[in-house]
Design a protein around this nucleic acid. Structure first.
Length: 903
RNA sequence: GGGUUCGUGGUCUAGUUGGUUAUGACGCGGCCUUUACAAGGCCGAGAUCGGUGGUUCAACUCCGCCCGAACCCA
């Protein structure tokens, strides 16, 4: 392959025969794909080119949830981002501007630990600012790697619009959000029951805990009964409770009995004495008691589980705090003070046994709640935390969810049920050392909350001074900085505001957006497993800040499963890595496979499906090669007058119009799998198998302006329609065939999406002609003839007006004749085909009789009406089925809409 | 345990308000060297639509129960 010197630049496109204007016989994705990936990035092909003055209807904006980049790319990333890329590429062509940004989430425990490991440091030895600086440095390599991987998957992301959740700009937005919500009265600080991880020593939210099966002891413990509902109990009267956590005995505040528990009903209203610790507690009835477990009598403590919290709230119980924030017993535990919960449990069981209060201690398996990050069993403590109020606005948030279009629609129910089940406000403070600081100080004298000034943000109260010298309430001058940081979701839920450049304008005294044209965002993609917190929290936050629902559309993606439809997980060892897949298959083939499932459905990773995509690439390449050979240079092809278009060419262009309409609708509705299937089968079956075979013959004896035009037009359109799915091969073909080798890249991905041209054609005649061709192909195959065998004469009945030559040429028929009348046949009525959609509603229960009569042959057609079973059916309700026998010369072939005689 | 979603040939999948012949792909079997493509073309086999009851003239489609899977929440 030689290239002449002037094009032998460092432009990789010149490596092959581009200058010779023919396509090589094989498509080589291994060389082509990286070439374009680099070029797109170098040329900034996907950079957002809108600004604040642009009509937001002309902008398609995507708010992408940022992945944790310190982890490695998995099939879920690949799939979810590929779906996003389909929408981005389609809309980039269909609209004026597309905004497809990227975010790196490095503001979490994962990157914190990574930084400590990589640098061999402890975050405690640095200020938060210093440590976060180091996190940013360490994460940079991981981000670069992630970026490379995303680029090698052909994500059409604008790499000049990225953010990191740890960067100062994002910290400022997080703190602005906090202050705005506080000023709106949507936040409060309260001492309240919190889910607490004693190992990490932080509050965690409901969603950060997970189930873990645990083997433990179930202990039956005797309580002294002091009073029953009828007054003082008999001396020495006891009852038994069962618990897995005897270390909570000092925290016991009451005993519960189920209202339906007849056997123990006499206890209700009475009083009991807790063994060893001696506090007297009331006995109360409540339906939340599980009668099946243990004795059916249960103690309630501060707090053993979430039911204890519910009881505390419902029955106004006192607090007895026996376990502190590090999981150590408090002074309330008396002799056990200072022990860990585990140690106290052992000791208390022993002592219970000594005083004769331990009835039995037996093996027991149950489920406990653990912190998802460290697997430590959680405690329920009373601590001071910041909350975002939510429970009072759940109706609004539900309505906000209704205002968005959900793809698929059914996923809205997950959002709805999550909201309907909400029981807690959102705890947003965390006791981590690192993270985005809560920008608050407290007056040492009166406890007044001092918020940072918006213009000072970001601040860190541990290093920065409060904005006032004296407390506005009491005039005090000593301030205590808030040590807590935000829950990462408090930041992750702000991505639309980060992307739109939300900020506080101190001069104007209002919040502004650098890019108001982006908001609300057209699309929010999200995995179906995290609708409840990520998407929900984002809707809540943005709604409260802007008064507007942040997204017009939500696209929920499913999960990639293994070939047996099981979830991929490292413990099962069935994880498929994107790198392995990318080594074996072209990215375009992987993308085509990604489009195979309906949006929202989980789907399995199957190698065979990737091969289908690979074959399509080759087919597209080969067809392009043929078209290139058949037609002159693209710019020499001109549109003929409408009247000069041959019927078959006009037919192709009209069919293409239909396909464009349909594909456009499907892309608009995020129906990628429908679009993919329809495009593939239209291209392969209608265009390649039918039309291209005809065109090949029509052009074999020299040029034909009509067919050349139709071929090139269809081909250009196909490249555009395939472009969102197969960005590399379409770009390669587009560049080779339809652009000058200009300085600047004129990418197929920045061309306009095809519009229908409004060609009018006899679609039915075309369809019949294709039927006839298919029938002749079948005839040749059945007769053992090669497909290019000559046929002497073929007669066709069934209008194929205008397509006679096309059929004859394509099928090598010497003499093709059309018939005005059906061939002479003897017919025999074999039955009646009813149109039940008409007959059913009309005759209802009589349909059975009608069917039976037809089955028995008891019917008669008179004057275009069918007399059967005592009723008379109109002509449109039925069709007489007949078998036809042809006794003339040649062989008769019937298709659905045509009859032909091959002779 | 509760909720949500789902269950269609060997595998994956279409099936829009119920209308009787259930779509396509992969795989499988057979045939065809045809001047873009054997990674192609043509033909064929293969499904009582998870099971079971019900509503209806008519159910893959609507309803009840059961079985199984995934996710979310306990």
């Amino acid at each position: 392959m030689s290239t002449d010197s002037e094009s032998a630049s460092d432009d990789a496109a010149a490596d092959e025969s581009a200058t010779e204007n023919t396509l090589p016989g094989e498509y080589d994705p291994g060389a082509v794909e990286p070439k374009w990936q680099d070029r797109w990035v170098d040329e900034g092909t996907y950079e957002y080119d809108g600004d604040a003055d642009v009509d937001s209807n002309l902008v398609y904006s995507i708010d992408t949830p940022p992945p944790t980049v310190s982890g490695s790319l998995h099939m879920g990333h690949l799939y979810a981002h590929t779906l996003q890329d389909f929408t981005a590429r389609y809309h980039r062509m269909a609209r004026e501007h597309t905004f497809f940004p990227f975010g790196y989430d490095d503001n979490g425990i994962a990157s914190e630990r990574l930084t400590e490991q990589e640098l061999g440091i402890r975050h405690q030895d640095f200020t938060r600012r210093e440590f976060q600086e180091k996190c940013r440095e360490v994460c940079q390599d991981y981000e670069a790697e992630f970026t490379d991987e995303m680029q090698s998957l052909a994500m059409s992301i604008d790499w000049t619009n990225t953010y990191k959740t740890i960067e100062p700009r994002v910290q400022r937005i997080s703190q602005l959000s906090f202050i705005d919500l506080y000023e709106q009265g949507r936040e409060y600080r309260q001492r309240a029951p919190t889910i607490w991880c004693p190992d990490c020593e932080t509050a965690i939210s409901q969603v950060e805990q997970e189930d873990k099966d645990k083997h433990t002891k179930f202990n039956d413990i005797d309580f002294d009964l002091l009073e029953t509902s009828d007054g003082a109990a008999a001396d020495g009267a006891t009852f038994t409770i069962s618990t897995t956590r005897p270390e909570l005995l000092p925290a016991c505040v009451s005993v519960f009995v189920h209202p339906d528990d007849d056997e123990n009903q006499h206890l209700v209203g009475g009083t009991a004495k807790v063994p060893i610790f001696g506090q007297e507690v009331p006995i109360i009835a409540d339906e939340r008691v599980d009668m099946e477990t243990g004795s059916g009598i249960v103690m309630s403590c501060t707090f053993g589980d979430q039911t204890d919290i519910e009881w505390y709230q419902a029955h106004d119980l006192p607090l007895r705090i026996a376990i502190d924030e590090s999981g150590t017993m408090t002074d309330l535990a008396g002799d056990y003070q200072g022990m860990s919960t585990e140690e106290a449990r052992e000791a208390i069981i022993e002592d219970l046994d000594d005083v004769g209060a331990l009835v039995e201690s037996r093996d027991h398996d149950h489920t406990v709640q653990v912190h998802e990050r460290c697997e430590t069993e959680v405690e329920y403590l009373v601590t001071e935390q910041w909350y975002v109020e939510m429970l009072d606005r759940t109706d609004d948030y539900l309505e906000a969810g209704r205002e968005m279009e959900w793809y698929p629609e059914k996923m809205f129910t997950r959002y709805q049920h999550w909201i309907e089940g909400l029981e807690w406000d959102w705890c947003i403070s965390r006791q981590r050392d690192s993270g985005i600081p809560i920008p608050v100080w407290y007056c040492e004298d009166c406890g007044e909350t001092i918020m940072a000034e918006k213009e000072d943000l970001p601040v860190d109260p541990l290093s920065d001074d409060p904005p006032v010298d004296a407390c506005s309430e009491c005039g005090g001058s000593d301030f205590r900085p808030e040590e807590d940081v935000f829950d990462t979701w408090a930041t992750s839920s702000l991505t639309p505001l980060i992307n739109a450049g939300w900020d506080w304008d101190a001069e104007a005294g209002e919040f502004t957006m650098e890019h108001p044209e982006l908001y609300q965002f057209d699309l929010r993609p999200q995995g179906h497993d995290i609708i409840s917190f990520w998407l929900f929290h984002t809707v809540v936050k943005c709604y409260e800040h802007t008064g507007e629902v942040p997204f017009e559309n939500v696209m929920i993606n499913g999960h990639v499963l293994d070939e047996n439809r099981e979830k991929m997980s490292s413990s099962r060892g069935n994880v498929v890595l994107p790198e392995e897949v990318m080594e074996k298959y072209p990215v375009d083939a992987i993308r085509f496979w990604s489009a195979s499932a309906s949006v929202g459905d989980d789907f399995p990773y199957k190698e065979g499906d990737l091969e289908a995509g690979e074959r399509l690439l080759q087919k597209l390449w080969n067809a392009s090669r043929l078209i290139d050979q058949l037609t002159p240079a693209a710019d020499a092809v001109e549109e003929p007058d409408e009247d000069d278009l041959a019927a078959v060419d006009r037919w192709m262009l009209a069919e293409l119009d239909d396909a464009v309409d349909s594909l456009t609708e499907q892309f608009e509705a995020y129906e990628f799998s429908k679009a993919r299937n329809e495009l593939r089968s239209f291209f392969w079956n209608s265009f390649c198998d039918d039309y291209l075979e005809i065109a090949k013959q029509r052009l074999s004896d020299g040029g034909d302006a009509s067919t050349e035009y139709a071929l090139v037009t269809a081909h250009r359109t196909f490249l555009k329609l395939f472009a969102p799915f197969l960005p590399h091969v379409t770009e390669e073909l587009w560049q080779r065939l339809y652009t000058d080798e200009a300085e600047e890249l004129d990418s197929v991905h920045t061309t306009d999406w095809p519009e229908t041209r409004g060609y009018d054609a006899d679609l039915e005649a075309g369809e019949r002609a294709m039927e006839v061709i298919a029938a002749l192909r079948r005839y040749k195959t059945d007769s053992g003839l090669p497909l290019n065998a000559d046929l002497d004469t073929v007669q066709v009945y069934g209008g194929i007006a205008g397509f006679e030559d096309a059929v004859a040429e394509a099928m090598h028929v010497a003499d093709l004749e059309t018939l005005d009348e059906p061939p002479e046949v003897t017919t025999e009525v074999t039955g009646v085909d009813l149109d039940y959609s008409l007959v059913g509603p009309e005759y209802g229960s009589e349909v059975g009789d009608i069917d039976a009569a037809i089955e028995a042959g008891e019917f008669e057609e008179v004057d275009g009406k069918l007399q059967v079973a005592g009723v008379e059916l109109d002509g449109e309700m039925y069709e007489i089925e007949e078998s036809r026998t042809y006794s003339g010369e040649g062989e008769m072939i019937e298709t659905e809409n045509a009859v032909l005689i091959v002779g």
